[in-house]
Design a binder for these strands. Structure first.
Length: 420
RNA sequence: CAAGAACAAGUCUU
């Protein structure tokens, strides 16, 4: 049944879940027994397709059939839980594997460390990392890269360099992903000179910049407003036979439209489509925001319809952009209607959603409605963040209610925010 | 080399 499982896992990797399950059922019907690996492959396919519930059901099914999920099966599920933001559930499932006495290995630690880093628990991640040797799990280049990326994302580049040093001392080689994480961290801090230097030394270290490397560089130059250099890099990557993808284009398009070149942005989008690339909601949202900020509501809504025609879903950010566009043109109630639509669709609004609407109401002088939304936001488990406070304080100031503004200022300080 | 892990793009206040 190695052949059969190979086929099933190939379908799962290709995202053809339906085919994978059809094959699975056929094999079972013709008397070929699946094993742990067959189930793990299918569970992985479900996880990667975002069907976490079905994945967990399949885990139960395999147990009912008398199979024992192994550490790989659990790692797959734990990773998927982390990636969908369910940090607590992920950790619970990990506890379960510990209770069952399943093996620890480098991969499970890497998954845990990555999940903790991305969930904002860098200290815990670090703790995990430190206890690996005691449990006979040796960190490899991926484990290090995960931790380096985690530190870069919190802006602690110094610690990232230390880790790079440490991994090299242990005989592990940094690869293109490791360098990309560093370049990205430095780029987000605006350290152009530093990233150019890394970019130039990479080849000397035997590491060839990838299309991700170029996309990061391009994005950094775009955000600095240096479109010329960004496009020079785009040309360079073409010369090096690297294939720009949707992310590359979206960095460029975003750079263009934020620098007042909406027409060029739309043209480049067209060019991307002509190249046969399929647009996603990120790139549409960027263009829609650009049109709104130009005051061109018609074009913005037209792109929204185009998204729907292409079968693209509106995510939270897309909704936020529409709500913001509407609020800025004084159509706050229509914006609030979109919030209801999100609820109906089961799409969870985030801080930006509420902050946007709160800002809309404050600007209209309707502080009462703003506080209504603040209540709703908190009922939904979202505590006000620094932007919320800034918005409300500015709202009170605009009304001349300086005492109330000061009250809020004190509250935010009490809650541990430093006013900016 | 029959199953699992790492990097890039879009939105809010001042």
């Amino acid at each position: 049944h190695i052949t059969h499982t190979t086929l099933i896992s190939a379908y799962c990797r290709a995202g053809k879940l339906q085919e994978a399950f059809t094959l699975f059922e056929e094999f079972v019907r013709s008397g070929i027994m699946p094993n742990e690996i067959t189930y793990s492959s299918l569970i992985n396919g479900l996880c990667k397709a975002g069907k976490l519930l079905e994945a967990r059901e399949l885990l139960k099914e395999m147990q009912n059939m008398g199979f024992f999920p192994n550490h790989v099966t659990y790692t797959t599920l734990i990773d998927a839980l982390f990636k969908s933001g369910k940090v607590q559930e992920a950790l619970q499932l990990h506890d379960e594997t510990v209770r069952r006495g399943l093996a620890f290995d480098t991969v499970i630690f890497s998954v845990l460390i990555d999940g903790l880093c991305k969930g904002g628990k860098l200290a815990k991640a670090r703790e995990m990392f430190e206890k690996m040797p005691r449990l006979n799990a040796i960190p490899n280049h991926i484990t290090y890269t995960i931790l380096i990326d985690g530190h870069c994302k919190t802006g602690n580049i110094e610690e990232a360099w230390k880790l790079l040093d440490e991994m090299e001392k242990r005989g592990l080689k940094a690869n293109v992903v490791t360098y990309n994480a560093l370049i990205n961290g430095l780029g987000k801090k605006g350290q152009i000179d530093e990233i150019v230097e890394i970019f130039n030394t990479m080849p000397k270290m035997g590491v060839i910049p990838s299309n991700v490397t170029y996309s990061i560089m391009i994005d950094t130059y775009c955000k600095k407003g240096n479109l010329q250099q960004a496009f020079a890099l785009y040309d360079e990557m073409l010369q090096k036979q690297l294939i720009p993808n949707v992310v590359t284009f979206s960095a460029l398009i975003n750079g263009l439209r934020k620098n007042g070149k909406m027409l060029e942005a739309k043209d480049l989008f067209q060019k991307m489509l002509e190249k046969g690339l399929f647009p996603n909601s990120v790139i549409y949202t960027s263009l829609i925001d650009g049109f709104f900020k130009q005051g061109n509501m018609t074009a913005a809504f037209k792109l929204g319809e185009e998204m729907i025609e292409k079968g693209l879903m509106f995510d939270v950010v897309t909704y936020n952009v529409f709500i913001n566009g509407l609020c800025n043109r004084g159509k706050i109630n229509e914006g609030k209607e979109l919030l209801s639509e999100m609820h109906r669709k089961g799409l969870a609004p985030d801080h930006v959603t509420y902050n946007t609407l709160i800002h809309g109401y404050c600007k209209a002088g309707n502080v009462n409605e703003a506080f209504e939304l603040l209540d709703e936001m908190m009922r939904n488990g979202l505590m006000p963040n620094i932007v919320t406070y800034n918005t409300l304080i500015a709202g009170y100031c605009g009304l001349g209610s300086m005492d109330k503004a000061e009250e809020l200022l004190n509250e935010m300080i009490k809650r541990g925010f430093s006013p900016d």
